[in-house]
Amino acid sequence: MLKKDNIFTISVFIVLLIIPILFDDFYINNISYFMIWTFISLGLALIWGMGGILSFGQTAFFGLAGYSFAIISINFSDIYAVGIWSPILALAITAIFGAIVGYFLFYGGIYDVFIGIVTLAITLVLETFMAQTAGPEWTVGNARLNGFNGMQGMPPIGIKIGEYKFDLQGIGQYYFIVFLAMFLLWLLYKIKKSNFGLILLASKEDRTRVESLGHNVKKIQMITFSLSALLAGVSGILYTNWGGYITPSSMGLIASAMPVIWVAASGKNDFFSVFFGCILLVYISQTLAVNGAQYAIILMGLILVIVTRYFPEGIILMLKKLLTNKFLSKK
């Protein structure tokens, strides 16, 4: 049961589970924030690492989910259990939007770098559109879109049963994110081992050959794209819930570069490396941003250039392999 591969994953999760015993709320909230970004990174690792399709537009889904969640929960804040079904509805919208974009991309015969450009264009369109909605005429029901100032005042994810009230905040939020990450990592490993995952992996190597073996590659790519949009949406909703706000700049050019950097630097072919590396890199850029966000972004850019030039496999994955070979392979 305990395979070599899993030792790192299990030890990291044990550490994550005991962290709340050792640290106070401030750190717990920060670590929750770092972990929120792992979902969008895992989605990118799924479509890029496994599918060989580089999407620059993951933040479009991030923003779409965040905004949908905000708009729905503000408008229907009186209806029962809005904190449960509004995030689910927002995720559904995101997944459907992802499937539509995927349909246009893959059934339209767009491949390689063009997919990156088109997805980037979609993100920037959404950003440009949301940024000019500052005026009072831009409202959806009761929710003002507020342009560049961003939306706020949405009720948090949670539910009220009789007297008992549960909000996704503080330590509850922390454990929710840890368990969700555990579940999704397990699910992604299952997908990787499944028939579906194998076809996807094969299509990365040679699309035409897999198609001539009778598999519907376009459909599989479309579903994968929609799944990765869904994962980006999970990040978007949790982010909106965490800070209680969402702005158009979360879809801008710099924001959309970040998941690509985290995934490329960590190692796009291994979900655990992406999960761990993403937390680490978000932590580093947050710490650096104290002295000015520009310096953190310059460092992230440098990491991206150096990694693609010298360590195309990714640093975390490389270290993981190194440690595995050194300590675990001698039996």
């Binding site: 620059f56 710099i254 520009q294 310096y295 972004i297 992230m300 990491i303 991206l304």
Partner: peptide
């Protein structure tokens, strides 16, 4: 010969340059 990698690397360059101009 590594088109996707070149896209990623030039994106890194773009971040470095635009933020350096800001600084």
């Amino acid at each position: 010969g590594r088109p996707l990698d070149s896209v990623v690397a030039t994106w890194g360059i773009s971040l470095i340059v635009s933020q350096s101009f800001l600084v």
